[in-house]
Design a protein around this nucleic acid. Structure first.
Lengths: 337, 337
DNA sequence: TTTATCTACGCAAACGTTTACATCAAACTG
DNA sequence: CAGTTTGATGTAAACGTTTGCGTAGATAAA
């Protein structure tokens, strides 16, 4: 039993390898009859071209990489859904890498990726990442890159984001209108532009409503949920006047719920909570969580579209192709007044 | 600027390509001094071997594929976490494919995968899948396969599952002990062995407690959550005596909550609900959801270990390597009596 | 000294495709 | 009918690695 490759097909059909290859690509240089013969045998033997030989020769892998902090998060898993959908339609394969919000891992991953394994890359930067040398190095080695959500401004490429400034403003305003005067802001990283945008929205909203910004009400979370919960509890204990929490990321909203439960603080009577979240069951929580929900699926889809378009057209990706999609605020019980 | 490949390194060092290649592989046939020179230049030029050339030559891709129904599901996203962890440690890359529980897509995916793109495959079968021809065909084309959770018994390979029969029994018994006498069972697919196991547990538990099995209380869900909710509502309307629901999959537990909310049925007073789920916020739901929780992360990790071990040792995977991990029941308010 | 062994390296084939170029017969063109 | 075009196919190089084999020089053994 020989392997079934072009050579095998060529031998059995008394054709040259070149003709067989061309026939399978539906080249106009091959007669219809020959094409038919080739296709028939290929189907019969269940021929599948060797992806690596093809990639090597064409210097194209039909593969994109997705680098994200975590997958166990509704935002990212929905984004992957969108990415995979677009990729599949265009015949692309999707490699996935998780940074776990860890800088070292992200550096490792970018090293893996240097060297043509992927034609392009979709990336959401780890929250711990402060310098972008590894990304610049990676960028220098070719592949098209599109950032989504947690973007890196240091690279001159497209990014797909949401209206984070407005959302931060809106969330804060919503709490203020619900009667909150001492609003804590939990964010995942001050390094990332996305965190800064939401923070600015928060600050401006406070200012516009005549509330002084209090730095000590800003808490920077990390990737350890237990510790985050502890820190929120400490904040609530030491600052009993806190009557509102704006969580800039899903996990921190959950930690806030835990913290309130542990301390016996009633939501929304004593503390109102709003959070960025794509949690499908937000409405089923006790109490139902008011959310700023990003169009995660669409973000993934659009980012992938921009990327694949650039790859197929062999054109560089321009920052002007960036997209800003809108998040939506869903009012629920956790912020009821 | 020439591309930086072995040829380039060889030229600049006045060595042959072969020696450079061997030096980078730390072969004993190369002198320590030469190795050092090669490594230094490789580092300086940021050389990364071409993965496709290497894969082609060695007939090894250092890549595994993961085929799952969906990623927006805590069980699967946790499993991916485990898989990625193990893969990364061993220097493997992870390709991801989503079947969306759609038979056609699964067939497409298996076709993609025939032909050496991956060294091995981790798979959880789509719920719609009834025949396994495509899997048998795929299996014939070499790659090592390990099934997890939604397994396929038709292939003689290892599978990593949980104690589904016991869990089904336990869940049902738990409802009975909480006072339920008319227990509906929502399952995602009667085709899959996993569904059948849970179903058997359900039936046996009913029988052991002197409750007659009523086929009309068994509902088969699909991938449309809205419709699932509707169907649960219909069941609750036409069969008002139903006082317990055993959801064999997370999504159906959520749909049950929705249905009860829509109909104004109180959980747990009128209807008690237990469900298979890896939802991190199960305890924060209203009311907190009693769950059977599978060790999803461990399942992914162990499945990947079995797979990678087989690949590295070039040994076939035996059914005897299969693993059964235990799920855990978390009692919460949704089944309180 | 001759022969065997070892060390460190080079040569060249191979992996399976793709594709520029060559070939050759048949069908046109003037 | 000589010359040109067209259509269908073949030849062979290339992509970047890996690796079996060969070999030159050095050292050790006889």
């Amino acid at each position: 039993m020989n392997p079934v490759n072009l050579k095998r097909l060529a031998q059995e059909l008394n054709l040259s390898i070149a003709t067989v290859s061309r026939a399978l690509q539906d080249s106009y240089e091959v007669s219809p009859q020959t094409k038919e013969r080739v296709r028939a045998l290929a189907a019969e033997l269940n021929y599948q071209p060797n992806a690596y030989a093809s990639s090597l020769r064409r210097n194209l892998s039909k593969t994109i990489g997705v680098v994200i902090p975590e997958v166990n998060n509704h935002f990212f898993s929905l984004a992957i859904n969108g990415i995979e959908e677009v990729a599949r339609q265009s015949g692309y394969h999707v490699l996935i890498y998780l940074s776990h919000d860890d800088y070292e891992r992200e550096v490792d991953i970018t090293h893996y990726l240097t060297g043509g394994r992927v034609d392009g890359l979709l990336m959401s930067v780890a929250s711990e990442t402060r310098d972008f040398d590894h990304l610049l190095k990676l960028y220098a080695s070719k592949p098209a890159i599109v950032f989504f959500d947690r973007v890196c401004d240091a690279l001159s490429t497209a990014q797909v984001t949401t209206n984070d400034y407005e959302s931060g403003y809106q969330a804060t305003q919503h709490l203020i209108e619900a009667g909150c005067r001492h609003i804590a802001h939990l964010l995942v990283s001050g390094n990332l532009s996305i965190g800064r945008m939401r923070m600015q929205g928060y600050q401006t909203a406070l200012h516009d409503h005549g509330i002084a910004f209090d730095e000590t009400l800003v808490l920077s979370g990390d990737r350890d949920d237990e510790r985050n919960t502890e820190r929120v509890m400490e904040l609530l204990r030491t600052r009993p006047e806190v009557d509102g929490i704006f969580a800039s990321v899903e996990r921190l909203a959950i930690s806030s719920y835990q913290a309130c439960n542990n301390l016996g603080r009633a939501i929304p009577d004593q503390v109102k909570i709003i959070g960025f979240s794509n949690l499908g069951v937000a409405a089923l929580l006790d109490p139902a969580l008011t959310t700023i929900t990003q169009p995660a699926y669409e973000i993934g889809r659009e980012a992938a579209r921009i990327l694949l378009h650039a790859i197929e057209k062999k054109k560089p990706i321009l920052p002007s192709q960036s997209l800003v999609l809108k998040s939506e605020l869903f009012r629920r019980r956790s912020t009821a007044s």
